[in-house]
Design a protein around this nucleic acid. Structure first.
Lengths: 192, 192
DNA sequence: TATGCACGCAAGTACATACTTGCATCGATG
DNA sequence: CATCGATGCAAGTATGTACTTGCGTGCATA
């Protein structure tokens, strides 16, 4: 692996493990097995390094998320959504701290660089397409698919991310929460 | 106002305006119209100061939120929830940065100090009680009121907080989003 | 072999910031 | 009036951290 990549990976690793204040240039260099000077030679300054690292991390995560939707779009909406949620939950678990960092990155960063909206847009778009298909098939009421996507995304987002970060709910609790909310949501959109 | 309070208010103000990195002890002292030494004499060190300030801020915010539920519990659920949401949205707007700071405070802070879960518990509890009443009245299906509370809270949370912080949606968009999601939710819980 | 490039190493600079110390001042209260 | 507690003020310490400089070394390629 080339030096840039080693440094970037070390940065992501440190951000993930110790948060934004743990990622000093010294630690990054040491974690990457590289001299601190090299970090500056490669990335000029810390700001650029962090930007590059976050972008790399976000793109890796986006690629992983894309695979969430590589499952059969069965007409049993509940099964489909629960499957996606469970898979997403696992992936989020692995990257939870990086996601947290991305949530913290808001101030002073231009919108096109923000990692989080990118991710949420990707997911909402996939979901909206799925709901559109179900509407066409007559399974789901004639509602705005974007609204449905946003609604279920809100629920999933809250239960997984927020639940993991703030409440540390055990897995069963989160699964039950998810099922309960999903039922309410499905009652709301399915034709009877 | 006594010195402690002046310092605490200045801290909250600075956290709100400039974020966690903007709140240096020098700035805090200057904003409070007090000598920097006094800050340390009163609060021993910065960690304790921040803890005290966040607690004060959170309690103020909690008090404000309590008033959200001081409205008539009309049986028109949509009107009731939309009213609460609009009022909450205004209050959140005023404190958006402080809320953001509270969201950032996670690492290394024991759970009982966390501001955010306090707030979410308060709101969910009120909502659950409200839904319980509606179930007793036969307006709402016989569902778990806690699940309903969590579900609608997730939606409201995402659309307001996340929407304000990350996406900067205009007010109309957020209102439309809220209405759309609310309709889906209501279809899910109301008896037909 | 010679040149250049990537990198290590040691040392240092600049700066911000938390926190301390010693002394002076002033106002309230016994 | 005398004392004491709260505060200001000036100066300083300690530390962490981004970033720089100068030099040496080894490796690959012309």
């Amino acid at each position: 692996m080339n030096t840039e990549d080693k440094i970037l990976d070390a940065t992501i690793e440190l951000l993930d493990n110790e948060g934004i204040n743990g990622a000093t240039t010294r630690k990054i260099a040491s974690e990457a097995g590289v001299n601190e000077v090299t970090v500056f030679r490669k990335f000029k300054n810390k700001k650029r390094l962090l930007r590059a690292a976050k972008e790399r991390g976000a793109n890796q995560f986006l690629e992983e998320l894309e695979t969430l939707f590589d499952i059969d779009e069965v007409d049993d909406v509940e099964t489909y959504l629960m499957t996606i949620w469970k898979n997403a939950s696992k992936k989020i678990d692995k990257r939870i701290n990086l996601i947290r960092i991305s949530m913290e990155e808001v101030r002073g960063i231009p919108i096109e660089d923000k990692v989080f909206p990118k991710i949420s847009r990707l997911i909402k778009q996939h979901l909206a397409e799925y709901f559109q298909k179900l509407i066409d098939k007559g399974i789901v009421k004639d509602i705005d698919p974007d609204a449905a996507a946003m609604t279920i995304f809100s629920i999933v987002f809250h239960i997984t991310i927020y639940g993991k970060i703030y409440e540390h709910y055990p897995e069963e609790t989160m699964e039950k929460n998810m099922e309960d909310s999903l039922k309410i949501f499905l009652h709301g959109i399915l034709k009877t």
